[in-house]
């Protein structure tokens, strides 16, 4: 289960809308106990596909004519190293990453599956015509054959009565 506050989900959805029609990406930091991951921070990261030449050195695209920052994201490993070090120094763990699917559902693609790692939570935000729609969290299955939907619990730190309104709220922005 992935627990986050409504502010975290708002931040992810705002980032996804702001970067539309490109894909956005960012990191989920927090702590975990058993199967429960609790997000305490979300941090936007640059989509390295914006810098096509450098991205190609890290994870080459098979078909650069059809693949770009509009349908692909890549996080700069240097940034990851920086984020990992900073998190560790503050007693936090990298719990997973988020990215957007512009004009596609919040479901992992085959490309997502091929590039996924076990254990991490992969939060995907569907953005339709610039507006964030549903957000879902996925975890790669042990045998890498597919993703399992992960329970996403969104809590409002101010009022628990507002739990679950995050999606509606962001769409109004």
């Amino acid at each position: 289960m992935l627990k986050l506050n409504v502010e975290h989900l708002d931040a992810i959805q705002r980032h996804a809308a702001a970067d539309y029609p490109a894909e956005c990406c960012g990191v989920l930091l927090g702590n975990h106990a058993g199967e429960v991951k609790r997000v305490t921070e979300v941090s936007p990261l640059a989509n390295l596909r914006h810098d096509a030449a450098r991205a190609q050195e890290i994870v080459p695209l098979e078909n650069p004519e059809r693949e770009s920052e509009l349908n692909r994201f890549l996080i700069d490993p240097r940034e990851q190293l920086r984020v990992e070090k900073d998190a560790r120094a503050r007693g936090l763990t990298v719990l997973g990453y988020y990215h957007s699917h512009p004009d596609h559902p919040a479901r992992p693609s085959e490309y997502d599956r091929e590039h996924a790692w076990p254990w991490y939570s992969y939060v995907i935000v569907a953005v339709e015509k610039g507006r964030p729609r549903d957000s879902r969290s996925w975890v790669l299955s042990e045998d890498r054959s597919g993703f399992q939907l992960e329970q996403l619990e969104v809590a409002d730190v101010l009022s628990h009565a507002q739990v679950g309104r995050a999606g509606q709220r962001s769409q109004g922005q």
Binding site: E23, C25, I58, V59, N63, R66, E67, N71, R72, F73, L74, I75, P77, Q80, L81, E84, Y97, H99, H101, P102, D103, H104, P105, P108, S109, E110, Y111, D112, H115, A116, W117, Y122, A126, E128
Partner: peptide
């Protein structure tokens, strides 16, 4: 050891659009 984090939407436009 830094795992590459990459992904993206399906590249087939028309079919995926109808799913959405």
């Amino acid at each position: 050891i830094v795992p590459s984090i990459a992904g993206g939407a399906p590249s087939s436009g028309a079919a995926s659009g109808s799913i959405l």
